[in-house]
Design a protein around this nucleic acid. Structure first.
Length: 224
DNA sequence: GGCCAGGACACCA
DNA sequence: TGGTGTCATGGC
């Protein structure tokens, strides 16, 4: 299994190269993006972040004190804007009250920081792990729907696993390196977008030799 | 006009 | 514990 997961990683890495997810911005800005991107296209998140930057709102204090209706309008392009505005403010106010800033929360051992993030309304496992990994460079593997879809097609997942089951699988079988987890998750998303949507586009898929979707169709999947 | 996107939560059985 | 409805915008 270890060899399989690493083999897939290297094939994706060779195909797509260094994707360099979330290279810029403070840990706090990364965390804001992680909340805004919940079930949302990143392009829409970028529009919301640009609005926040233009309003000079990207700080713990300012986001905490924003009028909810005004904040909702700034992040409106990211969708679910009422929920997300509330979640952003709860997140910021918690950090201010308990730690002063995000970096201090992230200085704790991974398990403690993760439990704390998961205790906040609006931060589920994927968002918590995204914050740990991309904001804190802490090796916590991020599992998403694409991960399940792709590795289900390899027969490595059957769909019944919990989020933490899948996370543990990757974390036990891969070297505990934040840089590797960072790139692997980005590669999964990149690959899925190109090849593994509901209408798969399997032409030139770098993983086609092991993909059950193709094997089940006797490698005659409709190529688009 | 429908599908999809870098989820999470409340509610119910 | 697991399934379902809800939240919402914008690109294709």
């Amino acid at each position: 299994m270890t060899e399989t997961l690493l083999n897939i990683y290297h094939r994706l890495d060779k195909t797509y190269g260094d994707l360099n997810w979330w290279p810029a911005g403070s840990p706090f800005e990364v965390a804001i993006g992680a909340i805004l991107t919940q079930n949302t296209n990143w392009q829409n998140v970028e529009k919301a972040i640009i609005n926040l930057q233009a309003a000079d709102a990207l700080s713990l204090q300012k986001l905490s004190n924003f009028e909810p209706v005004e904040l909702e309008q700034l992040i409106r392009p990211s969708g679910y804007f009422r929920q997300k505005a509330e979640r952003l403010q709860l997140f910021c106010r918690y950090l201010l009250a308990q730690h002063g800033n995000l970096e201090i929360l992230l200085q704790q051992p991974m398990s403690a920081a993760r439990v704390e993030l998961l205790g906040l309304k609006g931060i589920g496992p994927e968002t918590a792990d995204s914050i740990l990994l991309y904001a804190g460079q802490i090796p916590s593997f991020v599992v998403d729907a694409y991960t399940r879809r792709i590795f289900g097609r390899f027969g490595l997942l059957n769909g019944s696993e919990s989020y933490d089951d899948v996370r543990q699988l990757f974390m036990q079988k891969l070297p505990q390196q934040a840089s590797l987890f960072n790139q692997y998750h980005a590669l999964i998303v990149q690959h899925a977008k190109i090849h593994c949507l509901k209408k798969p586009r399997c032409l030139n898929c770098p993983l086609s030799s092991d993909c059950r979707y193709l094997l089940d169709q006797n490698k005659s999947a409709e190529l688009v």
